[in-house]
């Protein structure tokens, strides 16, 4: 194989907002865009699939399907038409968690539009986290707080579900309300956290913290590397 052949083979053709680029195969969409000369000032965050900032929509040549992904996770494919969604305009009602109660109608009170859901499942198809988005919107409609909280646990609020919903629902904000209510009113309080807070307040770790404050950065790095990690 000649050098030219190899280069041809290892490069793919992608289209960023309509403009064609040849980029090395195997790169993520985000890296491919940077390779092509783009610099991310929005639509990029942790680069590890956790923050939800790099929502991306794309189609691949010859396929009618519109696909959703996180730019830092999805690898480029030949013939990809790519566009970033740096921000999702979304209605965000103001509520005071202290004044809410985990009642059956709490979701309808703040997000009455969930009653517009037609069960088309487009949100689920859009979710790069493989969540059952429609199912938790439906659970919200019938006031099943626990179901919404558990089905949406891995949501990273990338906003793709909201951009696709034909009923103009913002699923991820509803899920956020559910997890907040669930955490505050339903889940049992973690005893060990309460105990640890008491210990901290009583000054149990003051001496150790003082020691750390006086340690050099290089030594801190060493300590960090050797730290004990809790088993999962």
């Amino acid at each position: 194989m000649t050098e030219v052949d190899r280069e041809k083979k290892e490069k793919v053709r992608i289209y960023i907002m309509g403009r064609e680029y040849k980029v090395p195969a195997g790169l993520t969409i985000m890296k491919a865009m940077e390779y092509a000369g783009y610099r991310f000032v929005r639509s990029s965050g942790c680069r590890g699939g956790f923050c939800g900032a790099c929502a991306t929509i794309y189609r691949v040549k010859g396929d009618y399907k519109l696909r959703m992904a996180l730019a830092c996770q999805e690898t480029v494919a030949d013939g990809m038409y790519i566009s970033q969604i740096p921000f999702t305009p979304a209605e965000k009602p103001i509520y005071n968690l202290e004044e809410l109660s985990p009642s059956a109608n709490v979701f309808l009170e703040y997000y009455p539009e969930i009653a517009k859901c037609v069960s088309c499942n487009t949100c689920t198809k859009a979710c790069p986290q493989d969540l059952e988005v429609m199912d938790y919107v439906q659970a919200a409609l019938r006031g099943d707080l626990q179901e919404v909280a558990s089905l949406s646990f891995d949501c990273i609020t990338c906003g793709l579900c909201a951009t696709r919903c034909p009923a103009e629902i913002v699923p991820y904000n509803i899920a956020l309300l559910a997890r907040r209510l669930y955490g505050k009113y339903v889940m049992p309080k973690a005893k060990h956290v309460e105990e640890r807070i008491k210990e901290i307040e009583s000054g149990k770790f003051n001496e150790e913290l003082q020691k750390l404050m006086q340690t050099s950065v290089d030594n801190l790095k060493g300590i960090y590397e050797k730290r004990e990690i809790e088993p999962e």
Partner: peptide, 26 residues
């Protein structure tokens, strides 16, 4: 206007009232 339904009503309305209303009026 979905946004103008009073909160007090939303607290007691059956979900089926909202679903059917929105299907016919939004």
């Amino acid at each position: 206007s979905v946004n103008e339904i009073p909160k007090e009503e939303l607290k007691i309305l059956p979900p089926i009232a909202l679903v059917s209303n929105f299907r016919k009026t939004t």
